[in-house]
């Protein structure tokens, strides 16, 4: 059996990758994927903790339900996000975030 800490470590690593990915990538799709990665790292942490608190049934449910909610919400975000990215692409023929610097100062 793999110890719980490994999952948690993985989750933290994933989260950090996501958080850093947002910082270093320019492609808006990839940035968006990094954010999804962060959300999913959260999910992983949730199920891990649910497993950790296995003695407490309510906690198990709680954690797992949360994951479902997050996934649903992420899906909604994808819908909105992709729509926006597509719009941008149509207008600029590019989804490079660094070209979106009209607003500044």
């Amino acid at each position: 059996m793999i110890p719980v800490n490994y999952y948690l470590t993985l989750s933290v690593v994933l989260f950090s990758m996501g958080a850093l990915g947002v910082l270093i990538r320019r492609n808006s799709l990839v940035v968006f994927m990094s954010i999804e990665l962060m959300l999913n790292a959260g999910n992983l942490a949730f199920v891990t903790f649910a497993k950790m608190h296995a003695a407490n049934l309510a906690a198990v449910h709680n954690g797992q339900i949360f994951v479902f909610f997050v996934m649903t919400v992420a899906a909604a975000e994808v819908a909105v996000g992709l729509a926006l990215i597509v719009l941008i692409f149509r207008k600029k023929q590019s989804i490079d975030l660094d070209q979106l610097t009209h607003l500044k100062g």
Binding site: V22, V31, L97, T101
Partner: peptide, 10 residues
Amino acid sequence: QNGFVRSYAL
């Protein structure tokens, strides 16, 4: 405030 999303995220 240079307009780059990356710096905002940073």
